[in-house]
Amino acid sequence: MILTVSHATTYRYSAPMRGAVQSLRLTPSRFDGQAAREWQVEVEGGIRGGSFRDGAGDRVEGWSVRGPVREVTVRVSGQVETRDLHGVLAGHRETVPAEAYLCASTPTEPDAALVALAQEAAAGASDALDRAHLLAAAVRAAIAYRPGATHAHTTAAEALALGEGVCQDHAHALIASAHVAGFAARYVSGYLFSDAAAGAQEAAHAWAEIWVNGLGWIGFDAANACCPDDRYIRLGSGRDAQEAAPIKGLAMGPGSESLEVAVAVGASQQ
């Protein structure tokens, strides 16, 4: 598929700020399932800083905006050619070994309920890949998709107790239960093309990757009960949502911040 992305994020401050600094992970990953045809990242009125590919294979760009500033807009636009690899992250180059993703961070700390969920789900599995699929299905069954039920800092344990959440919560819960089952697992942020008003889908999306020996990293989108295919664009990864965030930023000054996001992902068949 050819996916077209247009993504604008605007931070507005209640008072002029002395300046802002951002670290952006907004460039599509390079692997066999996707290739950017054209891609632009721009911080309006900003100064481009250093850019590099990090140990997890993500392209990172630093930006800064001089003050006084009342508003910062990050614009992303481009076209990506995608292929359905059934979730397998083939041909992706990275230095960080899978073993570095065996430990929980705060939002993926497992509680008794997550441990029970993982143990029950994985019980009848025939092999590791099957076990990973069963974990994703169990997380999907335990947490219903409902926007607004959770917030940015909700943990996997909290979302499971609530029984509701969004893609971030599904991903955190799947990472936590994968850890319980002995898998290395991580959080992935990206975009998703939605061809219908199919409910459980968000254009700015997130899912989990689980390491299966012999196959490598495999994406699991528990929120949509599937593995990422050619409707998905992968941007970057981390142990949790905060680490994998496409935009990390800080504005210096007394003002409070409000956020406005507009994402559109369109598709054209080749």
Binding site: S23, G49, G50, F52, D54, V60, G62, M252
Partner: peptide, 12 residues
């Protein structure tokens, strides 16, 4: 320093 690690990792 906000952004220090990006400068560091890009060799600045």
């Amino acid at each position: 320093i906000a952004g220090l690690m990006d400068v560091y990792r890009s060799g600045g």
